[in-house]
Nucleic acid binder design. Sequence first.
DNA 1: GGTATTTGACCCTA
DNA 2: TAGGGTCAAATACC
Length: 279
Amino acid sequence: MALGSPTAVVLELMTMGYQSAAYLGELLRAASPTPASEQQELAAEILRCCDRVIARLSAGANGGRSKKRKAVEPAALGVAAGTSSSPDPVTPTKRRARGAEAVREITSGTTADGFIWRKYGQKEINGCRHPRLYYRCAFRAQGCAATRRVQQSQEEPAAFVIAYYGEHTCGGDAAAAAWQEREMPPAVINSGASNTSAAAAADRNMGWRTPALLGVEQRSCGGDAPSETSQGWSPSFSSEVELDVAGFDLDVAGAEAYSSPVWEFLNGSFDWESVINSL
DNA sequence: GGTATTTGACCCTA
DNA sequence: TAGGGTCAAATACC
């Protein structure tokens, strides 16, 4: 997909909306003791709608390009065909035997966070319907010890519970911070979760990136391909990263960013017609 | 042949 | 001892 194309922008915006809806659902769950309130149902419906659009746009965007093996995606991404009928809340972590001590956990509608991850393990967890996936930063060879654990939520199959361990030392955070220092519209920066600076800072720490930031980090990380073992430890864009189609020229100055398609969307001048035509 | 993913085995902690 | 986290050989895909 062409960078900055209208379809890319819509996909990005839908992803943002998806993440926001997932976050909203989590807030509602936390706020209401009722298992399935009307509000939660509404949030779930938003997730489903966004999911459909993202799937449709992604299919068109990839143009059939896929390096995934046939049986990988459903299992690896935890996107099981069946839907969860008996909510069996996943207790995030009973322990963390090895690895970094810092633990952050988020629930998101997408597993994309802008970093390049490499899957190194998958495990069936007792009492969990979906397998738990283990990823480490693709730049581990450069000393980046960040890892994450991804598990499809049993309460909301469209959402993923992502736990992060360790901090990225591969430069991704620095690039993201630099990007955020630019005076971008808050709606773009904060991924819809919150417009407060505190929340934005939390997002930075949580590794929950807006698609606009994804490219920054990937560019930052991807400049020097790592190679870890003779087995070949080069970075790959996991499928979720392949969905990252944020269409921005990240070298543009802040002022130029205001004329980006996203900004056009925000101020109502976005070219929807070309998107519709592309579908 | 190069690279990414799978998966069984092992390690380690509670 | 059970079970979660990681390793690494095997395998699949391009």
